[in-house]
Write a protein that binds this DNA or RNA. Structure first.
Length: 309
DNA sequence: ACCCAGGACTGAT
DNA sequence: ATCAGTCATGGG
């Protein structure tokens, strides 16, 4: 049986701007593979698709894929002008933003995003992508184009044995994922209800899940629920914050850095965080500059606020 | 061999 | 409330 080829979706990026490569390699999504011709094979709202960019045009093909779904996924409805305008006058942040100004925060499926970040602890980004692919192959529903598998649903993961999960190289994260899946299917946490909750309540709800701490909760809030104030602090962000805003002081505690980040970077702090994260990971000069900043002068007075207001 | 990775959980202070 | 130990696994 033959199907009509799905229509090609085309979106103008003239107003909004987008750097597809930077966005898809910035450690927020783990289901995209870049072809040699520059096209990206991946998933939007659980539907397989192909996406590519020619300058100020974004194109996508995939069955049952809509213009609105693609625009929403890439956050093309966000007020980027306001977001940039809300940033503080901060030379470091400006540098990070200028490194990849087309970096955008995605709006991904909450369940898959939750799973990805439960699996993310003490893993490198490439390994998280490998785990995502393994889970699809081992437990996901096979789709029409062969060798293509949907991400396993919560019931499917809860029905799996912990041994099956460990075969996906999850290690100690297998139990976390297994328990979290049960919590979701038993209604202990409703991923749908989180959608309309105030961010703080949404965060508290996510924290009830096994394997979800502050960092993972903030990643899910930011990369799936569009809560742009959520500010995940992983080892990279912690390092760059410490070096740039606390002069390398090892004694500053994480809670204080989170507090500083919220007030300093403002209502779209999550976006600032993503620019900083991508910058320190991808720009070799970032580490040099950050180290130089940290070497300037260690703090003397522990009570003082180091980061410039 | 050694250190690190988009951390969270547990049990002892 | 804070804090070190521990948890698998693969890359560099």
């Amino acid at each position: 049986m033959t199907r009509a080829a799905p229509p090609q979706i085309s979106l103008s990026l003239a107003r909004h701007g987008l750097d597809l490569d930077a966005t898809l390699t910035s450690g927020q999504s783990f289901c995209w593979n870049r072809h040699a011709d520059g096209r990206w094979r991946g998933w939007i709202d659980g539907r397989p698709c192909l996406v590519w960019q020619h300058g100020e045009v974004l194109r996508a093909v995939g069955s049952e894929l809509t213009h609105e779904a693609v625009a929403r996924y890439f956050g093309l409805d966000l007020p980027m002008r306001d977001i940039f305008a809300s940033f503080p006058a901060d030379p470091w942040l400006e540098r990070a933003r200028d490194f990849a100004p087309g970096l955008r925060i995605l709006r991904q499926d909450p369940w898959e995003t939750l799973c990805n970040f439960i699996c993310s602890s003490l893993k490198q980004i490439v390994q998280i992508a490998q785990i995502n692919a393994s889970l699809r192959r081992a437990l996901g529903e096979p789709l029409d184009p062969p060798n293509l598998y949907a991400f396993p649903t919560a019931p499917r993961l809860a029905r799996a044995t912990e041994a099956q999960l460990r075969e996906c190289r999850l290690g100690f994260r297998a139990r976390h994922l297994f328990v979290a899946a049960r919590q979701v299917i038993q209604g202990e946490v409703s991923l749908e209800k989180i959608e309309t909750m105030p961010t703080e309540e949404a965060r508290e709800t996510l924290l009830r899940l096994q394997g979800v701490g502050e960092k993972v909760a903030n990643c899910v809030l930011l990369f799936a629920y569009g809560r742009l104030e959520a500010f995940p602090i992983d080892v990279w962000v912690e390092r760059v914050l410490r070096q740039l805003y606390f002069k390398g002081s090892k004694r500053v505690k994480l809670a204080r850095m989170a507090d500083f980040s919220r007030t300093h970077f403002g209502p779209y702090g999550g976006y600032a965080q993503q620019f900083l994260f991508h910058w320190v990971r991808k720009d070799p000069r970032a580490l040099v500059l950050a180290n130089a900043a940290a070497a300037k002068k260690p703090v003397e007075k522990p009570g003082e606020v180091e980061g410039q207001a």
